[in-house]
């Protein structure tokens, strides 16, 4: 066996130079380089990666690098203008091939504008994740969903998930296979049960082809759950984590485990 250098995780650049064999790393398959660059993040690509050399710039300009974009406010200070421009550039570069987008801090720093920007240029989109901390986004979401006819997976993190949102998604996304609704909250109230059951009934009415459903932190009761089980016969997985008003001790529990292969129960059941 050839001797292997055992020096662990050297931190300084000097040591790198000592270690460095004479290999030219640009000879690496471009798939490897692209895979690395796609992981350094948009901000670093624009700040650095792209300026390293011609080969890297070509990789960074390739639409395939931009099929998945996560629009999140980076920790470094950025002006609103710069932040928006950066993501618009990413969307432009995808040349309509964007398939998976996450938009966080929605309704914040003008993200309405970015969602619209994505919607106008990404008819191939398959996965959409929205992390929304207020309810101002609803109209803008409706407008955007009209332009994502191929959407297969939609995830929403919010304080409040209404029947109307579910209806809108049902109306514009006929191919939806996976629906994830996460209610972000720390306390649960009985008075919300009726409203959440309505939301669940709307799921049952609108998503007969649904295969995966996550309803985390939801205040629905067994009434809502029954409507889902009746309305979505193709469900393969159902996640009911942190749904405190679901009771699976009796027949409902039996029915769930018979009908659904991948069942995740509320914490205490």
């Amino acid at each position: 066996m050839p001797s292997t250098s055992k020096s662990k995780r050297q931190k300084t650049k000097k040591q790198w130079q000592v270690m460095q064999p004479t290999r030219n790393w640009l000879e690496l398959p471009s798939d490897v380089m692209a895979s690395i660059l796609s992981r350094v993040g948009l901000h670093d690509i624009i700040e650095n990666a792209e300026k390293v050399c011609t080969a890297w710039r070509q990789i960074c300009k390739d639409p395939s690098m931009w099929r998945v974009i996560c629009i999140d406010y980076p920790c470094q200070y950025l002006s609103y203008e710069r932040f928006t421009n950066m993501y618009k550039l990413a969307v432009d570069r995808s040349q309509g091939q964007l398939i998976d987008v996450t938009i966080a801090h929605f309704g914040f720093f003008g993200d309405f504008e970015l969602l619209q920007y994505v919607a106008d240029r990404s008819s191939q989109l398959r996965c959409l994740t929205i992390i929304a901390y207020d309810s101002l986004w609803y109209r803008s979401l409706t407008e955007a969903l009209k332009k994502f006819p191929l959407l297969e997976k939609f995830s929403l993190y919010s304080y409040h998930i209404s029947k109307e949102v579910v209806e809108t998604v049902g109306c514009y996304c006929p191919l939806l296979k996976a629906f994830k609704l996460i209610t972000v909250r720390s306390s649960f109230y009985r008075e919300n049960v009726a409203r959440c059951d309505k939301m669940a009934i709307t799921i049952g009415e609108n998503f007969h082809e649904l295969e995966h459903l996550e309803l985390i932190g939801n205040e629905m009761s067994n009434i809502g759950l029954q409507a889902i089980l009746d309305g979505c016969p193709h469900l393969k997985s159902l996640d009911l984590e942190m749904c405190p008003f679901i009771d699976l001790k009796g027949d409902m529990g039996k029915r769930c485990s018979q009908q659904i292969k991948g069942l995740k129960l509320p914490d205490d059941q």
Binding site: K13, W16, Q20, T22, R23, N24, K51, V52, C53, R57
Partner: peptide
């Protein structure tokens, strides 16, 4: 530092 670590020349 990137160029140095990966032995890449700036050919732009």
């Amino acid at each position: 530092e990137v160029r140095e670590a990966l032995r890449i020349e700036n050919d732009r």
